[in-house]
Design a protein around this nucleic acid. Structure first.
Length: 474
RNA sequence: GGGGCUGUGGGGUAGCCUGGUAGCCUUUCAGGUUUGGGACCUGACGACCCCGGUUCAAAUCCGGGCAGCCCCA
């Protein structure tokens, strides 16, 4: 498995070999997620949901089906999503039913019933859900599937100002979880108006680099403004008794897609490297025994396991009859951060052999020092994050001319350029970039205003209003 | 959206051109000997993607479908 030479092959191989997914279900764009993949996903969900709860979100579950009449209430939303909707063929009654591609039109029907007064606001709910989109582009496992697993938040406020604050909070949540925890750096991009979420005022997507230097969109957050509140009649009475439409936002991180980034970013030629904080098994204990000392070694292993578990760590013992070497290969392939080897030698010397997955170093660890593994785990995650940050760092290059831009794309970089506008009047220039340079305007930096300082648009040479980022994408 | 490649036991493949016997490696299962970086011996289970056509006869040729992968827009 050679990640650098042939990323595509490496990616599909590793998904199968590490038992993340099984591709043989036989329906285009639908995959089976196996236990090892599911356990990683579960840990990702938990970290994400905890972060949302801390920021006053509450959990709920909505139906997977959405009646057609709901779906059609917000005109630009229908337009954007209708081509991708799976419709149920057989339905009871008269309403046609859609499998949710996203749940705005499910939530907001209820929001119009639940919200009456300023006292009901803000309302911040999320659900953990699988959603369905009939992708017409080539599907790729976890990267672009027709069913994926995500979280969607749907937040409601009395004012636009609060709603915009929420959008910034969502970007911070992405930073806190996807970057700080999972070690995946991103560029928060305010999308051009022609590329925003259907039904939103504006969209901010998180662009993440894959090893082949193409960008993939990870969590996106949207200012919905009053578009849906007007369509669904979601109104409240303010403190003075005046009736107003609410302001809304939504945010959608997809753990199944983020998993694709985690695997591609951190993995190496030996297999997965899973961040300590989401590894289903953080430490695998390999007992090294022969027929005579088997019981003794296993007893000692169990003792170590209990001690580590008492520290709140996820530990397993591989007591199968395979030889140690085979176990090493297998657990390295599966990306377990640490391996403890326990044999006669270790028991005698009261020292363990500790192997670290990312550095591939073996060292001895005094049995008294087991609690240090927690710290080692944090350091493990920091190293993964730093490596990913470094990869991202020299990818962004400033370009002044079309020639520069072409060259940057050939060199697999992200270009930072002056651009006329990300509103409608800039669309022609964007089309030019797509046709001539085969790249996309990804947007402007969303958490920091960058000024073109009197520069000209790299395409039309008119006065530039924005600094945009251009790259190739999935 | 356009183009290309591929489909043979659980996985990887040979056979296909030139129609007739499904071969190999691995996994799995059972038993035994082993166990400090992918163990060995013996035995067993297990396959031609689907539908149609041509033919005495189809894994092989033809048409269609489905699925996977790759490249381009």
């Amino acid at each position: 498995m050679n990640k650098e030479k042939n990323f595509s092959k490496w990616y599909s191989d590793i998904l199968e070999k590490a038992e993340i997914i099984d591709l043989r279900y036989g329906v285009k764009g639908f995959i089976v997620i196996r236990p090892w993949g599911a356990m990683i996903l579960e840990n990702m969900y938990q970290l994400y949901e905890k972060a949302l709860q801390k920021k006053n979100h509450k959990s709920c579950f909505f139906p997977v089906v959405i009646p057609e009449k709901n779906f059609k209430k917000e005109s630009s939303h229908i337009k954007g999503f209708t081509p991708e909707v799976f419709w149920l063929q057989k339905v009871q009654g008269e309403d046609k039913l859609a499998l949710r591609p996203t749940s705005e039109t499910a939530f907001y029907q209820m929001y119009s019933l639940w919200i009456r007064s300023w006292r009901d606001l803000p309302l911040k709910l999320y659900q953990r859900a699988n959603v369905f989109r009939y992708e017409t582009k080539a599907t790729r496992p976890l990267i672009r599937s027709r069913e994926f697993y995500w979280i969607e938040t749907h937040d409601v406020f009395a004012t636009r100002e609060e709603a915009e604050k929420q959008v910034q909070e969502d970007i911070e949540t992405t930073e806190e979880i996807m970057h700080e925890k999972f070690g995946i750096p991103f560029l928060p991009m305010k999308r051009p108006s022609w590329d925003k979420f259907a039904g939103s005022v504006y969209t901010i997507g998180s662009d993440v680099l894959m090893p082949d230097s193409k960008l993939i969109q990870q969590p996106s957050t949207h200012l919905l403004g009053q578009n849906f509140s007007k369509a669904f009649n979601i109104k409240f009475k303010d403190e003075k008794g005046k009736e107003e439409y609410v302001w809304q936002t939504c945010y959608g991180p997809a753990p199944s897609r983020i998993l694709a980034s985690v695997i591609s970013t951190h993995g190496d030629d030996k297999g997965l490297v899973i961040p300590f904080c989401i590894a289903p098994i953080q430490i695998i204990i390999i007992p090294i025994f022969n027929t005579k000392n088997k019981k003794n070694v296993l007893d000692e292993s169990k003792k170590i396991k209990r001690e580590l578990e008492n520290l709140g760590l996820r530990v397993e013992i591989d007591d199968s009859e395979k030889r140690p070497g085979e176990k090493y290969f297998e657990w390295e392939l599966k990306g377990v951060p640490f391996r403890l080897e326990i044999g006669e030698k270790e028991i005698k010397e009261k020292k363990l052999t500790l192997f670290t997955r990312d550095t591939e170093k073996k060292e001895t660890l005094n049995m008294r020092d087991l609690p240090k593994i927690k710290k080692f785990g944090d350091e493990f995650d920091s190293r993964l994050k730093k490596k990913a940050d470094d990869f991202m760092k020299d990818k962004i290059v400033n370009c002044k001319t079309k020639q520069d831009l072409k060259k940057a794309m050939e060199n697999k970089k992200i270009a930072r350029v002056n651009f006329c506008s990300i509103e409608k009047e800039g669309e022609k220039c964007a089309e030019h970039v797509e046709k001539e340079i085969h790249a996309e305007i990804r947007g402007t930096l969303a958490n920091k205003r960058e000024h073109p300082k009197g520069g000209k648009c790299i395409i039309c040479n008119k006065k530039a209003k924005e600094v945009v980022y251009i790259g190739k994408s999935y």
